[in-house]
Structures are given as structure tokens and as C-alpha cells.
Nucleic acid binder design. Structure first.
Lengths: 334, 334
DNA sequence: TTGAAAGCGTTACCAC
DNA sequence: GTGGTAACGCTTTCAA
């Protein structure tokens, strides 16, 4: 177990100072070509490995951007993460990822853990956090972006959309196609804030249209997916026939509902309409295809990087507020 | 912009040495109860945040475990990651995650990036890597676990299963139920190594049974999902009727195929059988349910942590080899 | 139970 | 174009 090769060792070999080695390895233009060549060659030969930890310590810059996501197993969040990491690559920043599993409690713990790593920025999914989390973040005094949401009192920058408003076109469309007895299928109260906003958006839109009270079907605590949609409908059994449209919090839930309804022999959309949210792959592949709302998950990631770029460059801290678009996708389920 | 609060500052406030503060904050039992209480209280009040970077630098331990996954948007890999991070939590280690997007090229770049952070261990998905990647890893001389595979020449420890062998029960089952003209639907050659192994497993099993040559249906470069399965079948159109069973590389692909077949008016399993792999949610929700092979993704993560625990504790480096089980799940699609 | 000194590997800053 | 010095915040080691 030989000791680590450091810049000092490389310097000694080429007969120069560690400082010059440092500059050479960082492509500092003040180093002469010959020197640089000699140094890189020596470094290679000695098996020198650059010590990011020491750099991070010395410069007080970790090179990390911390990100929280409610869940990894979600095509939309995964896509946001991917575009984030792709676009961040050129900047040399690394993503430090954590998953909250839709729990405000877990988020607090996670944020604490992430902040201990001195990230240069923090990207949170959603605009709802515990007071402690907010305090921690404020004390850390680092750039913050909240995404996938459009909170009233943001912690910093925002890249997202109003989950409530996003439901309006869906309800409008259902009403236009003659549906009146709506039910909303989503996660239990308090477990998924964006889902709750979507629910409120549906209730509000229904009120505006003068529809009868929308029934809330609880699919269980978040994350809710296909199986929870299916189970919720199976629990209701024939009672489901009293509704003429099921507005679901997400496409996987909608697909679960669709499947359960079909197993019961109901015809979609003739007997009952079903809508989803998020333009997941399953919405396009199911029979019939599910009417849904597309949110450009990739664009959210890219916009976040662009916001961060502005923050790092200008050091201006005027909070940005990027409202990304949504597009309704019509399927055969309505 | 006030300067960072350090242990020195906390020490000054309570009239003790930084050393005692360090010990108190790490719950060193040699610190008296009163002192600890005073220190933690002062730290809290001053908004002290522990500097992990400095600690990592000083102790030469990053506290990181690096993990590569082919894709985040995959219920199985997401589950493995979740169990990994859950089980690692008690050890105080942080996961540093990167996604290779099923590219050996990208993996190389990613491994380089991750190794620069001095992780204490490296967890890779799959047993196939570029020579450069292998060299990089060997030079780094850190504990390595390859998972989701059972390579012949592992880099270190293994937690996985043979993707080829895992297909045998599926082919056996198809043969037993009278199917003989099989096609395999998967990603293009060279883009998904575990998928390729599954394909070889199917070919081999078919040979053993004396079946006619299995047709390979190329669903495009990895990652392949629902839409690729659907598109592949749509491209073949009525030619698909020559097969009596479609063996798919994964459940999402199988669901795409199933959906395409149903859109063409074929009946599953009467006209053609469909099998998947991975026991994804969609296999249980689709109509009919898809016959699949369950791999305990969560268990893989837990076993990896257990292997790492052994490595860190004993410092013994005898390579472990954990073969996790698989269970066939029968659905109505066969 | 507590403290002093030293140093982890790098780079900012200034000098030449 | 290159080098010397000091320092980032913490913990190991030894001493009291």
C-alpha cells in the first residue's frame, strides 16, 4: 500500500514547484507549453490522481449541486434529473441526488445531509417544506431552485407550473364532452402536495362549471401508481358506475383505473371517461390511449440549469420565476 | 455575507478548545455530559454547520459510495437504489449516483467522474465494461461490487444472477404449453448487455428443446421500453402471426407488444403468447397479466450493502459472490 | 476529561 | 513564467 502521489511528488520529479504543477494540470495559460508537457507526462507516468477533495476544501467549492426528488421511479422526475445532469456536465458540476419518497420528514433529513456536503446550489422538487427545512436552507445561504411547482412564497428561484391551473383544461374538456359526475383519484391527504394541488384545481374548475360535488377517491399514501388506481376502483366495485369521468392524479394511476374498469366489463370512454397527468409512456400505449397533460420534464431540468448558470455568472440574486408550459394530449379514453 | 462558523468559533464561545468541540459533536464518549450539552447548544445557536468536506480531506475518507445505474427510470433499478440508500443510511455513507444510459462509453466517462471524488467503494450495474473503465477501476484500488449480473471475470464482488439462466424457466414453460415458434424482442445488438445475455439464454434453451430457430426482433437501441415494443410489432404487422410466442427482454417491452397485438385484433394468449421480465408493475395491471420473471431488486441493494459492510469491517478482500433468486410469475399472457 | 501541535493536498496571493 | 508562503477546517497523536 504505497502512499498517495501528490503534486509535490510530481513537482520533485520534474524539478519544479508544486504551484506550477497545480497550474499546469489546470491548464492555466501562464504555464509554458514545454513545462506543461513535461508535467502532464510525469503525472501520467507516476499514476498521479488529482484530489478533488483537497481542491474542494481549499477553494471552498464542492462542485456539487444537490437535488431532491420525491421518487426516482417516475419517468418525469427521471427525465428532469437526466436533463439536469446532461446540461450540468459542461460546467463540471456534479449532482448529489436524494429521494424524499414524498415525505416532508424525509426531506428535512435529506436536506440536512446534503447541506453538510457544501453544495453550491440546492434544487428541490416542490414548493412545500417543513419549517426546519426552510430554516436550514436559509441559514446555508446558497442559491435555491424549487421546481415542478409554482409556490406563493418561494425560497429562491422557481421553475415549474401551477399544478392546480394545469387541471383546468382537463375539466373543461370533460364538460365539453358532456361529462358531469366527476371523481378525482389521488393520494391520501397530506402525502403528495402537487397531487393535492391538482385535486384542488379540479374541484375549483368543477365549481366554476356548476358541476355536482366532485367525489374524492383515496388511492392511499403517496407514491400512488398503477396498482393503487386499480385497487381503489376494485374497492368501489359497481359504485363506480355512478360517475361518468375519472380524473386521475397521474397516468399510472389512470392506467390502473382503466384496467380495473375494463376488468369489470365497463367500456372506456362510452361508460366512463378516464384522464391522467404527466404524459407517461403508458398513456400512449394503453388501449384506449389516455387523455393526459404533458409537462416537459426535460425542459424543467434545462431551465433549472439555465437559472443556475445565471446565478453563478452574474451573482445577481433576483429570484427567477420560469413557468413552463403544459399541453393537453387527447387520447381515446375521453 | 458573513464568514463561515467553524469549530474554532464555537470553541471560543464556550471557552474550550476546538478539539473538544470536535469530540463533542461526534459524540465521543470521553467528553463530559455537561461539556457536550454546552457545546451542542452553542453550535445550534451559532448556526454551526459541520463541514464534511474538511472532514473528508483530513481523514482521507470521502464518505461516498459511487453507484452507476443504466437508467433511473426503471422500477427495478430505482428499487435497488432505494434499498441501497436506505440500508447505507445507518453507516453515514452517501450515495453518489450516475446514470450510464446503457452506454459503455458513457459509463467510462461516468466512472472517471465518480472516481475523482474518492469514493470508498464503487457499485456498478452489470459485468461488462470497457477496458479503460476496468483499468481506471483497478488503478483506484477500491472495493468494487458488480450487480444485476454474474460475470465470469468479475472486478471484485458480485451480487446478481445469470441473466441467461433466468430465461430457461420461461422457455420451458412456453414449450410445456405447446409453443414452438418463438421470437425474442429486445434491444439492438451491443446496446444492452444484460438483455443480450437474456437473448442468448433463450436461444440456448430453445436449442435444448429442439425448437426451430428463434427469430430476433430488434426493438432499437437501449433503453427499450413500451413504445419500442409496440413499434417493433407494428413494423412487422401481420408477419407476427407466424410466431406463437413472443419472449420479451422486459415487461415494459412485453406490454408494448401486447398492446400492439391487441390493436391488430390478435387474442392473447390464444393467438400468441407474450412473456416479459422483471416483474414490473405493468405486468400485473395489464389485461391479460403478463407472465414474467421476478428478480428481487430490493434484495440486490441490501445484499450489496451487506457485502460492503463485510469489506469495510474485516478489510478482508476475498471476493463475494451472491446469487439472488428469481421466481417465475404466471400471468394470463401465456 | 481536555488541550496543543501538526498536517491532510491543494490553491490564493504576492513576489520575482 | 515560476516559486514561496500561508491557509482552508478538521482530526490524529501525544501530552497533561
Amino acid at each position: 500500500m504505497s502512499a498517495r502521489v501528490t503534486m509535490r511528488d510530481v513537482a520533485r520529479l520534474v524539478g519544479m514547484s508544486p504551484m506550477t504543477v497545480s497550474r499546469a494540470l489546470r491548464d492555466d495559460p501562464t504555464v509554458s507549453k514545454t513545462t506543461r508537457a513535461k508535467i502532464t507526462q510525469a503525472a501520467q507516468q507516476m499514476g498521479y490522481v488529482y484530489d478533488t477533495t483537497a481542491q474542494a476544501f481549499r477553494t471552498q467549492k464542492s462542485g456539487f449541486v444537490a437535488v431532491t426528488l420525491p421518487s426516482l421511479n417516475n419517468a418525469n422526475f427521471a427525465e428532469t434529473f437526466r436533463s439536469l445532469s446532461d446540461d450540468l456536465e459542461t460546467t463540471g458540476l456534479q449532482l448529489l441526488l436524494g429521494s424524499t419518497n414524498y415525505s416532508v420528514q424525509k426531506e428535512e433529513q435529506l436536506v440536512r445531509q446534503l447541506l453538510a456536503r457544501n453544495p453550491e446550489a440546492l434544487v428541490l422538487t416542490g414548493g412545500f417544506h417543513s419549517q426546519t427545512t426552510r430554516d436550514l436552507i436559509k441559514a446555508a445561504a446558497l442559491p435555491v431552485v424549487e421546481m415542478w411547482d409554482l409556490p406563493e412564497n418561494p425560497l429562491g428561484h422557481i421553475v415549474g407550473f401551477s399544478n392546480a391551473d394545469a387541471m383546468t383544461p382537463i375539466v373543461d374538456h370533460l364538460v365539453q364532452t358532456g361529462r358531469r359526475k366527476l371523481a378525482f383519484v389521488g393520494a391520501s391527504e397530506g402525502s403528495d402536495m402537487r397531487g393535492a394541488e391538482r385535486r384542488e384545481g379540479v374541484l375549483e374548475a368543477a365549481r366554476r362549471h356548476g358541476l355536482p360535488k366532485v367525489t374524492i377517491i383515496d388511492a392511499g399514501p403517496a407514491p400512488v401508481s398503477m396498482r393503487h388506481g386499480l385497487a381503489a376502483i376494485e374497492r368501489l366495485s359497481r359504485e363506480i358506475a355512478q360517475f361518468d369521468a375519472l380524473v386521475c392524479v397521474s397516468d399510472p394511476v389512470a392506467f390502473g383505473c382503466l384496467s380495473a374498469l375494463q376488468r369489470m366489463g365497463l367500456r372506456i370512454p362510452d361508460d366512463i371517461a378516464v384522464t391522467g397527468f404527466g404524459h407517461f409512456e403508458v398513456a400512449k400505449i394503453s388501449n384506449p390511449q389516455i387523455t393526459t397533460m404533458n409537462v416537459e420534464a426535460g425542459r424543467i431540468g434545462r431551465e433549472v440549469v439555465s437559472v443556475l448558470g445565471g446565478v453563478f455568472d452574474n451573482a445577481t440574486n433576483t429570484p427567477m420565476r420560469v413557468d413552463v408550459g403544459r399541453t393537453m394530449i387527447h387520447g381515446g379514453s375521453t
